[in-house]
């Protein structure tokens, strides 16, 4: 028996919206501690990892660990039948469920849907707990804007960290550009830029993955970039009171 009720159903819709361009079919894992999801994109360059803690739900029960294989595209079709202010409940009775039930509740309406599940034998990757040598916290809409703008100039974006801040740069056929974001300790938390740089890094990434993932900015006003030289970068959106949505992106390395 599994039941998880989102107080804010819109949050679940934003999460699915943020990952739908990156991953097609995913295994949703549910157990006593909460819900998690880990899936790579088709090119095995990016990995999405979602972690939602049971304490963040209005109601949560999961007697036995469950794996529910679902198509993100079909999940979206079901979620499109819900309102952004609905409470959303996920439920299944069986131990080996073949469908996942959804209840959308608003003041004047209650809807019930069933999504057919699929069996996915997806390989899971072990993501080692890493001490990152550069960790940058910055406004998510600023990161989104920089990626979108520099992404117009070149498909690869460079990221260089230092004690002073973080620099994004591109060198393309049409020319080059760089954006340096300085640290600030403004009292407005959503505008703060913080850099913990034990070792500076200088990395290059395919910016289109950032642009696909940055829909997650709707989840949090801040984004955390964790980096070590020649290692995948982690973009993390903290989901208030519930958990986090992370994108791991493998770097591009000079030939």
């Amino acid at each position: 028996m599994f039941e998880a009720k989102f107080e804010d159903g819109g949050l679940f819709k934003k999460i699915v919206e943020a990952i739908k361009e990156l991953v097609k079919n995913v295994n949703l894992e549910a157990n006593g501690t909460g819900i998690s999801l880990q899936a790579m994109d088709t090119s095995h360059v990016a990995l999405v990892a979602l972690q939602l803690n049971e304490k963040g739900f209005k109601k949560y029960r999961c007697e036995k660990s469950l794996t529910m294989g679902l198509s993100i595209e079909n999940l979206q079709k079901i979620l499109k039948c819900s309102g952004n202010d609905d409470q959303i409940t996920l439920r299944t009775q069986d131990e080996e469920p073949t469908t996942l039930s959804f209840t959308f509740e608003s003041k004047n309406r209650i809807s019930e849907f069933q999504l057919n599940l699929m069996s996915l034998d997806q390989e899971q990757l072990g993501v080692p707990d890493t001490e990152y040598s550069s960790v940058v916290r910055m406004p998510s809409n600023e990161f989104t804007k920089i990626c979108r703008e520099l992404g117009n100039i070149n498909e690869a974006i460079g990221i260089e960290t230092s004690k002073e801040g973080i620099k994004f740069y591109v060198k393309g056929d049409i020319g080059e550009g760089q954006v340096s974001v300085k640290i600030n300790d403004t009292e407005k938390p959503e505008e703060r830029v913080e850099c913990e740089v034990d070792e500076p890094v200088n990395l290059s990434f395919a910016v289109r993955y950032f642009n696909l993932f940055n829909k997650a900015s709707a989840l949090s006003s801040q984004v955390i970039l964790s980096m070590s030289q020649d290692q995948p970068l982690v973009i993390e959106y903290i989901i208030e009171e519930m958990g986090s949505l992370k994108l791991y992106l493998a770097p591009k390395i000079n030939d």
Partner: peptide
């Protein structure tokens, strides 16, 4: 020219 690396190079399959 830079080459895109795959995640399998960094993360092990469980």
């Amino acid at each position: 020219e830079t080459k895109q690396i795959k995640l399998e190079k960094f993360f092990t399959k469980t």
